[in-house]
Computed example of a mutant assay.
Amino acid sequence: MSDFDLAFPFALGAPSVSAQFRQHCEDFVVNEVLGFSPSGEGEHLLLEVLKRDDNTPWIAKQIARIAGVQPMDVGYCGLKDRRAVTRQWFSVYLPQQSEIDWQQLNSDTAQLLAVHRHHKKLRRGEHQANEFIIRLRDCQGDLELLETRLNAVSQSGVPNYFGEQRFGREASNLHEAATLFATSLARDNSARKKGGRRKGERRPGPSGMVLSAARSWLFNQVLAARVERDLWREPMAGETTELSTGPLWGRGRNGSAGELLALETEALAPWSDWCHGLEHAGLAQERRPLVLRPMHFTWDFDGPDLTLSFTLAPGQFATAVLRELCRLEIPAISAD
């Protein structure tokens, strides 16, 4: 498989209202909520940074440069959007009480807000939530119908799709995954014909980003199949929990059964090589909820402009909410 259609099915049907999205960085504001206070002691520093039109790895690189450490010594809880205004925490390993002029981090696009001692490095997904304030400009179409959609999202949530950014620009991470799994399959077939891999032979390790994109793509395939059948909101027969969930593929038994297992097997049949590749990449089979219910969801119209405010858990995508509301018209500059 080599064609990656990212136009996944809509729960509410394709939106008829269009809106300008990310015309300015200030149209997309994110506040990272750690959910805990810095401990005040330890071998790491926590830095809270307000950034505008900068990506997370760039800020992390600047922190490492100023501290005189390796990039791997800098941690953060997740990647935040570049074309946005975001408040985000970083950790840096500094066991010695070094006198560092952190004001060097300040620039036209970044501002240091706070520095605290802490006892451990920040890890991906460790934070509690992300708070969003998003302005959609110049909404065109039936605004009463948009109001109906807003109420539906508030009451029932949206499909918990992984957002397009997970898959890279022009689905580049998925194309890389396709090449990876095709090469791996060819190598395995060749090894079988020759009697197996030689002792001690190792495969080159794929990047975590590519594997994450592949798992996300497979999850979206299952979710799309359930959205098309209007079976995504409630658990199906064969569900392992009281929530409707889909697989994050990896090694181990798929816990679903019955009707649900049949649906997932059918949805993933064209991607059997990917499933096989992920099983051999050292990832464990997991489940992810199919329903995203934005917390503290409010909205306000200012003429044709719509301002949304809501909170999401780590791993949830704001674009999964927005896509159910409007057709988003994005300026080319925000592609980065």
Score class of each variant (00 low, 15 high):
G168D: 03
L136R: 04
D230F: 06
W89S: 10
D188M: 06
D27Q: 13
W274H: 06
L146C: 12
A320K: 08
S18D: 03
A64T: 14
L328I: 04
A64Y: 01
L290S: 08
A19Y: 06
A182S: 15
Q20E: 09
L113P: 04
S272Y: 00
E41L: 12
P206F: 00
T298N: 05
Y93F: 10
S334E: 14
A110V: 13
S184K: 13
G196Q: 03
D305A: 07
V158F: 02
V30R: 15
E147M: 09
D101H: 10
V158N: 07
H280D: 13
F90R: 06
I133F: 02
S172Y: 01
L306E: 01
Q316R: 06
G315N: 03
K121V: 05
A269F: 02
G157A: 09
K51W: 06
H119W: 01
K80T: 09
V321E: 04
R123C: 10
G40I: 07
Q20K: 12
K120C: 10
E239C: 11
D81Q: 10
P38W: 03
R215K: 00
A214H: 00
E259I: 13
A225R: 07
H127K: 05
E164I: 02
T265K: 05
A281M: 11
L6C: 13
R187L: 12
G205M: 02
N189W: 00
V291E: 09
E228W: 00
A332I: 11
W232I: 11
A284N: 12
D54P: 00
P331Q: 11
F4Q: 10
F301D: 01
V33D: 06
S39T: 11
G250R: 15
E264R: 10
V33A: 11
F181Y: 08
G255Q: 13
K51V: 03
L47K: 02
T241V: 08
Q70A: 15
E201C: 07
H118E: 04
S156E: 07
F317G: 00
G252R: 15
R52A: 15
G315D: 02
C326K: 10
D5T: 07
N130E: 06
P247W: 01
T265D: 06
G68V: 14
L145I: 03
L113V: 08
A178N: 14
V17H: 12
V17Q: 14
S154H: 08
A182D: 14
E170T: 04
V210W: 00
L248V: 13
L278F: 07
W274K: 08
G141Y: 00
G168Q: 03
D81T: 07
G141D: 09
C326S: 08
A237Y: 00
S18H: 04
R124W: 01
N151M: 12
E131G: 09
V210C: 05
E144F: 08
R137P: 02
S98F: 03
I134G: 01
D73N: 13
A60S: 15
S244T: 07
V115F: 11
D142M: 09
H296R: 07
A318C: 09
A182G: 15
P204D: 02
A64Q: 13
Y76D: 10
T298K: 04
I134S: 01
P159H: 01
